[in-house]
Amino acid sequence: EITKEQQAFMKVIVDSYNRHQIPQDVTKKLLQEQYSAEENFILLTEMATSQVQVLVEFTKNIPGFLSLDHEDQIALLKGSAVEAMFLRSAQVLSTKMPNGHTEVLEERIRNSGISEEFMTPMFNFYKSIGKLHMVQEEQALLTAVTILTPDRPFVKDHPAVERLQEPMLEVLRKLCALHHPREPQYFARLLGRLTELRTLNHYHTEMLTSWRMN
C-alpha cells in the first residue's frame, strides 16, 4: 500500500494539478467568439499559451523540480510541454464538460485549418485516454512523470531527473493497483500512452508547419 510519505507527496502534486487550470476568461471565449478558421486559430493559440503557463505553475510544485539546474528545468519543460498539454487536453475532453463545451471545443479544433492527417491520431489519442478512465491522482502523476522524462534534448543531468521521476513512477504503480485491482496490466497501459504521446509530439511539429501555411 501507499506509505504516509508517498501520500503527502501525491497530495502536493494533485492539489497543484487542480489549482492550476486555464483561467475562466480564456475558456469562456470558447463559446463566445464567432466561428471561423482564423478565429479558431487565434483562440486555440491563446489557449495553448495559457496552457503552457498553467503547466509551468503546476511543474514548480513537483517536489524537487526547482532544485534542478535552471537550464535543465527549461529543457525539461520545453521538451515535455507539447506532450503534457496533449495529455491534459485529452483528460479535459474525456471528462464530459457541462452543457456541450466538449462538442464546441472539438468543433473548433476540427475547423481551425489543422490538417486531417493530424486530426485523426490526435482524436484517437483523446479516445484512448478517455477509455482508461483515469482517476485524478493518476492523471496528475502521469503528467508529472511525462515532464520528468530525462531523455529530452539539452537536459544535462539525467540522473538528477531520474531520481525525481523514480518515486513518482513507484506511487503511480501502487495507485494503479489500488484503483484498478482487476486490471494487472493497467500501469503498463498508462505507460503505453506515453509512447503514443511521443508519436503525437512528432506529428505536432509537422502539423504546426502545415497549419501556419494554411
Binding site: 503552457v52 503557463q53 509551468v56 527549461i74 519543460l77 520545453k78 510541454a81 508547419t209
Partner: peptide, 21 residues
C-alpha cells in the same frame, strides 16, 4: 521553428514568476 522559441519565452517568463513573488 518560431513557435519553439515562443514556447521557451513563455516558459522562461513563467518560471521567473517565482522570483518576483
Amino acid at each position: 521553428p518560431a513557435t519553439n522559441l515562443g514556447l521557451e519565452d513563455i516558459i522562461r517568463k513563467a518560471l521567473m514568476g517565482n522570483l518576483e513573488e
